[in-house]
Amino acid sequence: MKERLQELQQEALSKVEEAVTLADLQEIRVAYMGKKGPITEVLRGMGKLSKEERPVIGELANKVREAIADELDQKKAKLEDAELEKKLAEETIDVTLPGRPVQVGGPHLLTSIVEEIEDLFIGMGFEIREGPEVETDYYNFEALNLPKGHPARDMQDSFYITEDLLLRTHTSPVQARTMGEYNGSQPVKMICPGKVYRRDTDDATHSHQFTQVEGLYVDKDVRMSDLKGVLNRFAKQMFGEEREIRLRPSFFPFTEPSVEMDISCKVCNGNGCSVCKGTGWIEILGGGMVHPRVLEMAGYDPKVYNGFAFGMGPERIAMLKYGVDDIRHFYTNDIRFLKQYHKA
């Protein structure tokens, strides 16, 4: 009997060994382990055995069963793995084919620049103010120390609607409006981005509509060195830490002293090239200390309050920063242009 069981084990294991499909294994399992299988049959004949032999043979029979079951399980796992591998191999795709496109939108380059400027000044404690694009002569000119007949009005030929209404030529009227609103009684720290309009014929460097960002800080004891410090911080964040700034005296009716700010040319690192016309410097913005007349007209006592103001053109900044060669690109909305700058 013992021999018979060992023989069966041998026989079953070699069949498992030979099996190639899961079905084969199932067949073997049924054939050897089932109730009608040979092992059961052997066990049925145990009645004929002696008391001493019975447990020995019983134990052996269980070992044989276990051995076969183990082998069957192991083989089954192996075959299942092989089958899965085969299936996966069949499922292989060409990963180099293009994916289904998703529509990707994005902001206009000018919006990106304006928001960058906004965020930068918000970080320095400025608020964002807005104002009307159709302005009164008073806010656009007179409140900014540009009375009727002032020669500097020539500098910004305007689109008038009536004698008193015009498309604003700069965002500076928002300064006057904000100061008026604060009524001479509290500090003002704001920037105002917006569209402005001038009587220019559109060409590569002129546009009858363009964007401006104006800044104003009014408080007690504001120093010109503060203007220099704030603009320096702006320039470095906007154009890179390695850029230097310089201020030059200039003239605007609404500031005194007035400045123009240059940054060191990025192309030649200040050594002089065609971009900076050999000077090593590129003009970026204008500003100055708020003219006492402007403060006075807005209800601020120039003996108590003073401040600084500045204005810049996002188009010019974009042109310098990204090498855009024609201001009209900003308004033509050529998709091939817009797509170059959508950083979503």
Binding site: E118, G123, G125, F126, E127, D219, S225, D226, G229, V230
Partner: peptide, 19 residues
């Protein structure tokens, strides 16, 4: 103008932000 120092406003600071 080159000889002016770089300083930052010394007034009470306010929190800037979007409305």
């Amino acid at each position: 103008y080159d000889n002016l120092p770089f300083t930052l406003p010394q007034g009470a600071s306010q929190a800037g932000g979007l409305t």
